[in-house]
Each structure stands twice: as structure tokens, then as C-alpha cells.
Simulated assay, not measured.
Amino acid sequence: MPLRRDGTCRVCGTDLPVGTQAVYERSTRTVRCLTHEQSTASSAAEPDIGTAGASARREFERRRDAREQRIRAKHPKIGGLLHALTDEPQSTTAWEAGAAGEERLGSRLNAAASETCRVLHDRRMPGSRANIDHLAVTATGVYVIDAKRYKGRPTLRVEGGLLRQRVERLMVGGRDCTKLVDGVLKQVEVVRGIVGDDVPLHGVLCFVDADWPLIGGAFATRDVQVMWPKRLVASVRAEGPLGAGAVGRVHHVLAESLRPA
């Protein structure tokens, strides 16, 4: 289609003035050169942004199906009935809840996508069984996002100070969830090893269904921002020093380095 306004190819960062024939990608609200549409190497030029919550949902289904098979094997005649009448253990349903949270946040991030906000979902961390839930490459840098669907209100508890070492703890509904901050910091370092120190990095814990107050509520601990989906979307849409070309290049590098989980 001929562009109705100036744009930038999300793949190579080339400026595309009004009237240029280009491909408009409705899902991400970005454009790309016809050369990438026609290239036989399009799979390399068009990174797979991944599917939010895909690996968590697969793990839930694997555990659910394995439990059903065990019950049916142990009780051949009434196994199906027993399975239907009993609940899945919490260790299994937690994977479904996590997948749902990632899917909901992923949908919001996809809706916020533009030439200066490009997303990746469910990326495998090299040399680890862990994954990064979401990445948003934006005008203000790269957001490394861990989505959580926890109940309760996230708060910051600070201990120590003048005479004792300051210790910050992330509490959610009275539970100590500080280890979540450690996890995000590890993910940030993985991304830093790929993009270097010249691109600003923002670690984020995004609680999807938490009990957030009507006013305020967001905070940071050890350089990890703790917030809710609407606040995150506003952050990734903010204007910043990185142009569409730079955003496209960083997005492509991350997509190639961190494959879908």
C-alpha cells in the first residue's frame, strides 16, 4: 500500500516517505520495505515476536494430561470420573494462572506496538530453563518484563538504614516475594550482554491482578520497577531518544539472540 504518512521500515530502519509502496503490519502497527516482503530470506528479516504465555500454557497442559493418564492407569474403570471430580493440584493450576497473566499483558503490549515500541514474548534464556515473559524495545530503551498474577497488594518493606545495612523486601499480600526481583535482575543482565551498555534497560515486575491502590502504588526496588499493566503501557509508549531505526535494529538483534520458548 502507498504510505499516507512518513514511516520507517521496522526491519532495516530505512526512512519511508509518504507515498512509498510498503507493507503495513496491522498486528504491530508498523511498516516494512517491499524488499523484505519479496526476499526469499524473509524468515530471517521478519523476527518471530513469539506468543505470550505459550511455554507456561504448554507446561500446564503437560501436567494436567500426565495427571489424567496416571489416574486412568490406576483406575481403568472409573479413572475418567475420578479425574473429572477432583481438582488439579495448586502446583499445576499455578502454571495456568501464570499463562493467563502473560496472555493478558501480552495482548496489551501488542495493542501498544508501534514503530517505536516493538515487542517480543516468551523468550528462552540461553543456558537456562527460565524464560523472559516480555520484552518491549521502545524510544526510552528496552523493558525486560516479568508478568505475575498474584493476589494481594505489592509493597516495599525497608529494614535497616543509618546504623544497619539497608535491606529492601518486596511483599505481596504479606508474602516475601523478593526472589522475584532477583529473577528480573538476572534477565536484565542477559539482555545487557546482548545489546551492550549503550541502550537503557528497565527491569519490570508487572502484577496483573494485584490489589493496587487508587492513587500511587508503583515503586522501584534495586532498579526494578513494580507496577500494573496500564502504568506499564504508558511507560513503553513514552517518547525518548531512540528513533524508529534504532528501535528496529535492537528489536531484530534481541529476536535473533533470544528465541521463542
Rank of each mutant, 00 (worst) to 15 (best):
L3D: 03
L3I: 04
D6T: 06
G7M: 02
T8I: 08
R10L: 11
C12A: 03
C12L: 02
C12R: 02
C12E: 02
G13Q: 04
T14E: 12
V18W: 09
Q21W: 11
Q21P: 03
V23Q: 14
Y24F: 15
E25K: 10
S27L: 14
T28I: 13
R29Q: 13
T30Q: 08
R32G: 06
L34K: 12
T35F: 00
H36L: 02
H36F: 01
A41P: 01
A41N: 10
S43F: 05
A44D: 06
E46M: 12
D48R: 09
A54M: 09
R58L: 09
R58Y: 04
R58E: 07
E59K: 14
R62V: 09
R63H: 08
R64V: 10
E68C: 11
R72V: 14
K74H: 15
K77P: 00
I78A: 15
L81F: 15
L82M: 15
H83Y: 15
L85V: 14
T86F: 13
Q90Y: 12
A94D: 10
A94H: 04
W95Y: 13
W95N: 05
W95P: 01
E96F: 12
E103G: 05
R104P: 00
R104M: 05
G106Q: 07
R108F: 12
L109K: 09
A111E: 15
A112Y: 07
S114L: 06
S114C: 12
S114V: 08
T116A: 13
R118H: 02
D122Q: 15
R123T: 08
R124P: 01
P126A: 05
S128H: 10
S128F: 01
R129C: 02
R129S: 13
A130K: 12
H134Q: 11
V137T: 12
T138Q: 09
A139P: 03
G141S: 14
G141C: 11
A147V: 06
G152M: 09
T155M: 13
V158K: 05
E159H: 10
G160N: 05
G161W: 02
L162M: 09
R166I: 07
E168T: 05
V172K: 01
G173E: 11
G173F: 11
L185K: 11
E189V: 03
V190P: 00
V190W: 06
V190K: 05
G193R: 04
D198L: 14
V199E: 05
L201Y: 03
H202T: 04
H202K: 06
L205S: 07
W212V: 02
I215V: 15
G216L: 08
V224R: 03
V226A: 07
M227W: 04
K230P: 02
R231E: 13
L232M: 10
S235E: 15
S235Y: 04
S235H: 14
V236L: 06
V236S: 06
A238H: 06
G240S: 08
A246I: 13
A246Y: 04
G248P: 01
R249I: 07
H251L: 05
V253T: 14
E256T: 11
S257M: 06
R259I: 12
